[in-house]
Design a protein around this nucleic acid. Structure first.
Length: 275
DNA sequence: GTCCAGGAACTCA
DNA sequence: TGAGTTCATGGA
């Protein structure tokens, strides 16, 4: 499927820290494992992405996954036409970023693991978990062997001693507890997705190992509450370097999470961070 | 070898 | 509420 969209850049999305299983195959081609499938995408032109899937899969899965019904140009234009110089530059630089609609459980576990780790380390941990607990599959189109992200039931049944080999550090017990809570129905992610961002944060923070930042990431990237505003070390850096007088995310009511992604992506670029 | 990472729990004031 | 400490592990 060929997608023509001025705000769809797969490299920017892959490097925006929201997903951990989208990696380069060649310079312009990326492989992505999500929802039990593997696909490849290619940035053909600045505003053209080729998604290597059939029209049926595109309509059922990937159109929604890449949030292609939403007009990111509206927000980029608004920021670029505004008076906030940092956001002007940030939005222009990351204008191809989109907020993916990822699987809630995968996002929950991924961001529990993410705490106090850099992105390559997070990716390595998740890959180990998928190899050990996920399902091995083979993509017919590319011939690529891949591993799906494990279900909550599968991870809920994991033994702590075994999970320890995944090198999650002290986060391993958080992962098991959270998986068991989801499997048991103590946490209803679908319900949190249907509800408000505030409600989701309140419920997510009840889980040990989930604080404000991780809860906001899960809300934004897993439940698609785009009014979430995760503050990690990089966003803190932005706020202290460029907003000495304070920053009110509330003025971007409704889409603060998208603004936050432009900030995150841009400040990392300024500091020369590739991964 | 040192510092840091999409932090959170815990302690103590 | 707020500041300081501790927690595993690996990337840079």
């Amino acid at each position: 499927m060929r997608i023509i969209n001025k705000h769809f850049n797969i490299k920017q999305i892959a490097d925006s820290g929201q997903c951990f299983r989208m990696n380069p195959v060649t310079e312009k081609r990326y492989g992505l494992t999500a929802f039990g499938r593997y696909i490849e995408l290619e940035q053909v032109e600045e505003d053209i992405v080729e998604i290597y899937c059939g029209e049926d899969d595109y309509r059922r899965i990937w159109k929604d996954y890449f949030d292609l019904d939403y007009d990111y140009g509206l927000i980029v234009d608004r920021l670029c036409g505004g008076s906030d110089e940092f956001l002007k530059a940030a939005a222009a630089y990351g204008s191809g970023i989109r907020i993916l609609r990822q699987d809630p459980f995968e996002t929950l576990i991924s961001f529990i693991i993410s705490q106090n780790k850099n992105i390559p380390a997070i990716k390595a941990c998740i890959e180990r978990i998928c190899r050990a607990y996920g399902e091995q599959k083979k993509d017919d189109a590319s011939g690529k062997v891949y591993y799906t992200f494990p279900s909550c039931e599968r991870l809920a049944g994991a033994r702590l001693e075994d999970l320890r080999a995944m090198k999650l550090g002290y986060r391993d017990e958080y992962v098991i507890a959270a998986s068991r809570a989801v499997a048991a129905g103590d946490i209803d992610l679908d319900k949190l997705k249907a509800g408000s961002h505030e409600e989701a944060i309140k419920e997510l923070k009840k889980i040990k190992g989930i604080g404000s930042k991780v809860a906001n990431c899960i809300s934004l990237f897993g439940l698609h509450h785009i009014d979430a505003f995760p503050v990690d070390v990089w966003v803190k850096r932005v706020l202290s370097e460029y907003y000495r007088d304070g920053f009110d995310a509330g003025i971007y009511g409704g889409y603060a999470g998208i603004v936050q992604q432009y900030m995150f992506y841009y400040i990392r670029h300024i500091h020369g961070r590739q991964t």
